[in-house]
């Protein structure tokens, strides 16, 4: 019972935080709120019996991705201004609100047929999951089923994921790894000065 109460409270916090993120315009505050959002989700993953996922989310979401976003903000903010505010948007908001409301209503209608939260007889629990839980320890000798599935049963999948991370690192290096070239405007000014 206490599980359910914590689950409901944390999920409500998450929804409120996400709405606050949308409504704010100060990007530094938004990035810090996003860190809080990730920490709350890590707590929720613990409540939903997924300690491995919570571990990763706490380290990645609240740690690394916040640092990367702050580093980006430091690069894109205007010099001499301590904060970065997004420009007031010129679009009318109602069109996107209609799109979002219609999509959301369709998705909520879709939840009517989903088995209820925590149902032990849901189709998701009765097929391959049962095989993993029964055979992971005898077949691999590893008590942590998540590690056994990650590295052994689905080793190909994980190899692909590692390749994706490696590729992303290479792409980031290619995009912003070197020293910054001078902005085009300054270069032109300099050339004109040289000619003069």
């Amino acid at each position: 019972m206490i599980d359910i109460v914590i689950d409901i409270t944390l999920l409500a916090f998450l929804a409120i935080t996400s709405v606050a993120i949308v409504r704010m315009t100060n990007l530094f505050a938004i990035v810090m709120l996003f860190g809080i959002f990730s920490l709350l989700s890590a707590g929720l993953f613990v409540v939903m019996d997924a300690p491995d996922v919570a571990f990763t989310e706490a380290a990645v979401g609240a740690g690394i991705s916040t640092v990367l976003m702050l580093a980006t903000l430091a690069l894109v903010k205007k010099p001499r201004e301590p904060f970065y505010n997004e420009a007031p948007h010129a679009h009318r908001a109602w069109l996107s609100l209609v799109v979002v409301a219609v999509t959301g209503a369709a998705l909520v209608y879709g939840t009517w047929d989903i088995p209820r939260f925590g149902d032990p007889d849901a189709p998701a629990q009765t097929h391959v999951a049962r095989y993993y839980i029964e055979n992971a320890l005898p077949e691999t000798g590893v008590p942590n089923i998540v590690t056994a599935v990650l590295a052994s049963y689905r080793g190909f999948d994980t190899l692909g994921e590692v390749a994706v991370i490696f590729t992303a690192a290479v792409a980031v290096l290619l995009l912003i790894g070197g020293r910054r070239s001078k902005p085009a405007v300054e270069k032109k000014d300099k050339r004109e000065q040289d000619e003069a």
Partner: peptide
Amino acid sequence: QHLGILLVELGVGITVAAAMLIMFFAF
């Protein structure tokens, strides 16, 4: 299985740590 899982996880750990540091140092 034990040896294989250990080595594979080691490879994953090295790549993830190095990739995250590469990204941070680039930014």
